[in-house]
Design a protein around this nucleic acid. Structure first.
Length: 425
RNA sequence: GUGGGUGUAGCUCAGUUGGUUCAGAGCGUCUGACUGUGGCUCAGAAGGUCGCGGGUUCGAGUCCCGUCACCCACCCCA
């Protein structure tokens, strides 16, 4: 019986890697343009890093993490990046040395949920964290950055939805209001929402059930409970978006599942994604640093689902025009006894000289070697037969015209090298 | 954790009311078409315990049960 990868974990095969790199490369370039330097964080952490921050009652912590023990210590595969970034920020004393940090990361995250479209056990996030400041223009900046990335990728049709959750006080006040307004209607809510009422009552607001929506439609919105500071921060964020001419829409019922969010939160949704409709999401978390033992410094960030971006691009038909890897400069074909080793030697020289070349390793016929050459998309083929070998020459064939010429064996590098920069790839 | 759907060659799928074309097609792969040369065309070949295990039947990809895997959805979230 052949083994296969665990459920919910995909191999990213060579044929697919070009698409991944297309997104990753573009993201890295843009992150740098916005001043977000890369940080590489561990794939597993002390369990407490996430339990306290993501939320004890969130599904991620309740049943969604891969955990394991080593002796007395409890660990988990990271389910998200923000809490780990904050941990590193504090561990390395950034608040005291250089409190304002703009970081980005790209890498795998792990959540133990039933897999479905756009939801895997191992998935990949592109994330950004701006730590140590509470400037509302930072909220606007990261929203703009995500949108900019989508635009650069040719990912059209996404919507930017935002809302504000308010500070702790606003939320406490609003929570009480909701409890009062929803309490008497509890029986009309679905079973999930009745559960949500006790765990995270805000999530009742974005339940998909019609009955629940009808009930929650009658409740007051958080906007009405917002304190002056939160109101002006949100306004300033929106103003920042307008300055940058970023289109957005406000959804007062947008709620985030992670506990650490405060203030503005946002989501990028796309119709090509299926039920998991968010390309990415994020928001401000002004209490997170303090709650982890640091000073009262704010932060904001987002995480985008790499697979989801790929799904959306696929839905848009933006899949072609991506070479799997740079094409070879030349494919080397050997004909007849005694030619293989000299050809192998030539390959070594050409590679040392900076050219991408390859040759057959399956003992295939000349015709088959030519087929390989053709498939490789190499613009040139070098044919070494007994005749050429005896003359110290090699046949250089242009694959586009089929034109052939013999050149001295030791001149190959200098003949191909000048044009190498013009070659595809 | 809960539903629903699907499981036939490497890939995409046909296989009608269970019975000598039900083991097939297309694509892909490989070989060959005046003995050292690709892309097009033509010819041919390889490749499948029909997910797995039971059962019903004279006889099962084709019916029943179980099981596993995958997909989609709920939930949750990127």
């Amino acid at each position: 019986m052949l083994l296969s990868a665990p459920a919910g974990i995909d191999d990213i095969l060579p044929e697919q890697v070009a698409r991944w790199r297309f997104v990753e490369d573009k993201a890295r370039e843009l992150f740098a343009r916005y001043g977000y330097s890369e940080i590489r964080l561990p794939l597993f952490e002390d369990l407490r890093v996430f339990v306290h921050n993501v939320g004890e009652t969130s599904d991620i912590v309740e049943k969604g993490m891969f955990t394991f023990d080593s002796g007395e210590d409890h660990y988990c595969l990271r389910p998200e990046g923000t809490a780990a970034a904050v941990r590193a920020y504090l561990q390395h004393n950034y608040p005291k040395t250089r409190p304002f940090q703009k970081w980005h990361y790209i890498g795998p995250m792990f959540r133990h949920e039933r897999a479905q479209k756009g939801r895997k056990w191992q998935f990949h996030q592109l994330g950004v964290e701006a730590l140590g400041a509470s400037d509302p223009l930072l909220d606007a900046e990261i929203i703009a950055l995500a949108g900019h990335l989508f635009d650069e990728l040719g990912l059209s049709g996404y919507r930017t939805v935002l809302n504000t959750l308010g500070c702790g006080d606003c939320r406490d006040r609003y929570r009480r209001t909701l409890q009062e307004q929803l309490g008497p209607q509890r029986g009309r809510l679905c079973a999930d929402c009745q559960r949500r009422m006790d765990r995270n009552i805000f999530r009742v607001l974005d339940c998909k059930q019609e009955a629940c929506q009808a009930v929650s439609a009658g409740t007051s919105t958080l906007q009405e409970a917002l304190c002056g500071n939160c109101r002006s921060h949100f306004e300033a964020t929106l103003q920042g978006l307008r300055i940058l001419e970023i289109p957005y829409e406000i959804n007062p019922r947008l709620v985030r599942g992670l506990d650490y969010y405060t203030g503005p939160v946002f989501e990028f949704v796309h119709p090509g994604l299926g039920a998991q409709s968010a390309l990415g999401a994020g928001g401000r978390y002004d209490n997170l640093i303090a709650e982890n033992g640091g000073p009262a410094l704010g932060g904001a960030g987002f995480a985008l689902g790499l697979e989801r971006i790929l799904i959306a691009l696929e839905a848009l038909g933006q899949t072609q025009a991506l070479a799997a890897s740079p094409a070879l400069h030349a494919f080397l074909v050997s004909i007849g006894p005694g030619t293989r080793e000299p050809l192998f030697q030539l390959a070594g020289k050409l590679r040392r000289g900076g050219l991408r070349v390859d040759l057959d390793h399956e003992g295939r016929s000349v015709k088959a070697q030519m087929r390989s050459a053709n498939r490789s998309a190499a613009p040139f083929v070098l044919v070494l037969g007994c005749d050429e070998l005896a003359q110290g020459q090699i046949t250089l064939k242009r694959m586009d015209t089929g034109q052939e010429s013999k050149i001295p064996l030791d001149s190959v590098l200098s003949v191909l090298r000048p044009g190498a920069a013009d070659l595809p790839g």
